[in-house]
């Protein structure tokens, strides 16, 4: 008879497939940089969530007698800012707004951009041309300039600057979604799904989303670092968070006047931005290669 008789193979143990996410996690855990970065990111998120318990002092309460203490001063391990507020507490609280403004616009843009890209890629033809050329118009501006222009037009404020950042990130996400969808649409497994009775909705939900969401999600994660820097930039320019809210970008701006008297103090918010964005980048890099099992 054809085929391999069952008895022969029964002796060979075939390990049950551990499942996709377990495999991804295992591969991820073998990249030391990515693991450290992921731990840092988790630490930062925990810091933001538990800020009221972690911060040793009130981040809004200043004492003009204790302005610009250098790091290491008694009672102020990281010194005080130009209004005498505890730096450590402000940095801890600053993680809240900075992370929030880095993550939320990217996820909002992910929802909008992925929808636009998937529709454009799946429908194709004129729909694709109209949608993607519109995206290209936004693409023509440098992202910093676009964010500043949009935030300037909408007026300062957290909500407006998040809206501006969302708009900045919709086109790149839509472009990635469109190109991946176009690639998937012509694949044999989509035709095979059609041949076994799947309609357009099933194909978009299962075949397209299943294959497209992974790459887009990884791409969006890599944008979080960029978004944080942009958000800090907007705050630095006075278009985002308003004082006295502790935000790393804003702190960088207000402390810049003290750069000659306390250079180390001024660098602290920048250091936080640097650590956060590089951690997100390294983590995404690890995730990207861990998820690329089929390659």
């Amino acid at each position: 008879m054809s085929a391999v008789p069952d008895g022969v193979v029964a002796g060979v143990a075939i390990a049950r497939s551990p499942g996709y996410w377990v495999t991804v996690l295992w591969r991820f855990s073998r990249d030391p940089f990515a693991v450290v970065a992921a731990l840092v990111v988790l630490g930062l998120i925990a810091m933001a969530v538990f800020a009221p318990w972690l911060a040793p002092q009130d981040p809004f309460h200043g004492m003009s007698l204790r302005r610009l203490r250098p790091p290491g001063s008694e009672g102020y391990p990281l010194g005080t800012d130009e209004l005498g507020r505890d730096m450590l507490s402000r940095l801890i609280y600053g993680a809240r707004i900075s992370l929030f403004m880095g993550i939320v616009p990217v996820f909002a843009a992910l929802a909008v951009g992925a929808s636009i890209g998937i529709v454009a890629g799946y429908v194709g033809g004129w729909t694709n041309t109209v949608l993607m050329r519109t995206m290209d118009v936004f693409f023509a501006f440098p992202s910093v300039l676009l964010a500043v222009a949009l935030a300037g037009a909408l007026g300062p404020g957290i909500l407006n600057s998040m809206l501006a950042l969302t708009l900045v990130f919709v086109p790149p996400i839509a472009r990635v979604a469109e190109s991946v969808t176009t690639g998937v649409r012509t694949r044999d497994y989509v035709e095979a799904a059609k041949a076994s009775g799947a309609g357009a909705l099933i194909i978009i939900r299962k075949q397209v989303l299943g294959n497209v969401l992974g790459p887009i999600f990884v791409y969006a994660m890599s944008l979080i670092a960029v978004c944080m820097i942009l958000a800090s930039g907007l705050s630095f320019l006075g278009l985002g968070v308003k004082p006295p809210q502790p935000d790393w970008g804003l702190m960088l701006n207000t402390l810049r006047t003290a750069i000659y008297t306390q250079p180390l103090l001024c660098a602290l918010p920048g250091l936080m931005i640097f650590i956060t964005s590089i951690s997100f980048n390294l983590m995404t890099d690890g995730l990207r290669s861990a998820m690329d099992i089929k390659a």
Binding site: E191, A192, A195, S196, G197, A198, K206, G210, N211
Partner: peptide, 21 residues
């Protein structure tokens, strides 16, 4: 009708099976 009335075996199973399921 597709799949129930008539169904199809494709040439290259690696390409015709969805890699993520």
């Amino acid at each position: 009708f597709r799949g129930k009335g008539a169904s199809m075996i494709f040439q290259e199973p690696m390409l015709a099976l969805d890699p993520v399921y």
